[in-house]
Nucleic acid binder design. Sequence first.
DNA 1: AGTATTGCCCGCCACG
DNA 2: GGCGTGGCGGGCAATA
Length: 326
Amino acid sequence: VQRLTVQGQRPHKVVALVTPGTSLFELTVAWEIFGRVPKDDLGVTLYQFILCSATRPPLPSDVPGISLTDVRGLSALRGAETVVVPPPKLQPPEALAALRQAHQRGARVISLCTGAFVLAAAGLLDGRTATTHWASADAMTENYPTTKVDASVLYVDDGDVITSAGSAACADMCLHVVRKDYGAEVANQVARYLVMPPHRSGGQAQFVDMQPKRIDGDDLIAATLEWAQRNLDKPLSVELLAKRSAASPRTFARRFREATGTTPHQWVLGRRIMLAQRLLETTDAPVDDVAMQCGLGSAANLRLHFQRLMSTSPTDYRRTFQAKAG
DNA sequence: AGTATTGCCCGCCACG
DNA sequence: GGCGTGGCGGGCAATA
């Protein structure tokens, strides 16, 4: 099915399917990331965000005293490019039918937390991999045996259907969607504005991507990044990285920015500081040694960048961390 | 802390 | 003419 989004056609229409008792936390996370923040260079919003329901407003939410008033009917799903489904788990049959119809028409459907049960009830998760809140993972496996439930990840991207795990993971997933729609740079801007990490630290696979990997040159960049990550102590000039990616420095820098949202040098710098953090936390190595091991050359240089990115000095960072740990 | 030098990066343009 | 690439140079951040 062809995605309805056309390059350059803005804003992308996001419709949240709500019901009495809708969970405000997840709904407002989606609203912040899609509805409020993303803007292009001219300050124009990149998403249009509206609510619709099978029930006429006002709809009570899960928070006492707060209800939803500006809610349209199910027909609003007809123009949706993306449908957002927050908890609770249950929706009336006509909502399920409308959801199914929107999906068949080509809309992307994304669920937040236990909203995945609504997708499952509509049959959208049959034979697919999905995730939901860990506390409900067993219930989902029992009720929908053809769905493979992976409770260990933040979200599962199956292309036209994306599911996210509990509460805060919704933010990671929504950010992932922004990245897919408008690129890493816009996503990073949103993350920075909301003061959340652009991608959770840790490095291990925290989301499952069922989409076929792109086969173009981005794989070469990815491989180079991985290599650079493991060799942070060595000099990592743009020229060197470009050579490893079999591209000219200029082209490499361009592709790099498209893929990561930053420049090569800034990315390397960020990784080096992350490594310094780890070394400061887990070893007693002198600051000079830490600086050498993460490729920053000298303690003075490490201090400079550490201060700028972390707003503390390396020794202070180590002290507070060790005080907490010990 | 101040200075010199290196290297980055981004706009611009030519080329295929 | 559109599109992606590669090279150049000015301005400036990063390093020595």
